[in-house]
Design a protein around this nucleic acid. Structure first.
Lengths: 127, 127
DNA sequence: CTTGACCTTCCAGTAACTGGAAAGATTAGG
DNA sequence: CCTAATCTTTCCAGTTACTGGAAGGTCAAG
């Protein structure tokens, strides 16, 4: 499989697939005689694993960790759960932040007439 | 006022105050004989305005826009409201994303025993 | 043989700072 | 007046996770 087929199968851009090998997140793939990268099912599965982890918002370093747990038959589920729980609290923290931000901004937007007059509570609040 | 006093008053790191002038977000401040940047109340107010706008998650370019509206006596409140409303929808979109992410991840975390055994639904899901 | 779709490497840019080095200025204490 | 600590300056590099683009090699079809 050439890189574009692998990228397609994993649901990633070609550039990103190269990038992940460059930074050592995945092994460097073997090459054809012409120097083309060649991929097999196993590498595609790993790439897809990374894509899904990234979609969950895990950082590259967390993906590195998850990937090594993914490939380690003897890991404990506790190790995985620790990383996922950490990410979960981050998400919840971010949610709380966004909620108060939204409420405040929604309040400002509602109180602004949004007409041709210069009078603006949003600007007043920021200034 | 030297830079550290101004930064303190505006609630920003010194580095950031310099940075904002470097990228032309605020005017370059005047200099003392020794070349020290000197700030007055007005520039501190602008810096604080930017800080608050940034805290709302407005991008630097949006801050640029807001700042010019802030300084424009003749702007209409509609112009300001447009930018704030845009930001509000972004926040709400992000909230929806985070919510489904959280639900999915929370479900996985709950279903994972988190013990010494290798069996792990989180990894199973990602892989 | 040519055309177009691949592929390669390398370099640069994104957003918004942040850290650090090297060197000059100022201030407080002795 | 000297010195040490604390500013301040500029400049360069690093962060995160890619993404875009240029210059050039390869491959399959017609």
């Amino acid at each position: 499989m050439n890189i574009s087929a692998a990228a397609q199968a994993a649901g990633l851009p070609v550039k990103t697939v190269r990038y992940y090998a460059d930074i050592g997140l995945v092994e460097a793939p073997s090459r054809s005689d012409a120097g083309y990268r060649t991929y097999d099912e196993a590498s595609v599965r790993k790439l897809a694993f990374i894509r899904r982890s990234r979609e969950f918002g895990f950082s590259i370093d967390e993906c590195r960790e998850l990937l090594s747990l993914y490939q380690d038959q003897d890991r404990t589920s506790a190790e995985v759960k620790r990383i996922a729980s950490k990410r979960l609290s981050e998400i919840e923290e971010k949610q709380r932040e966004l909620q108060s931000l939204r409420d405040e901004l929604a309040h400002l937007v509602t109180s602004c007439h949004g007409d041709h007059r210069p009078d603006c509570p949003i600007i007043d609040y920021l200034g």
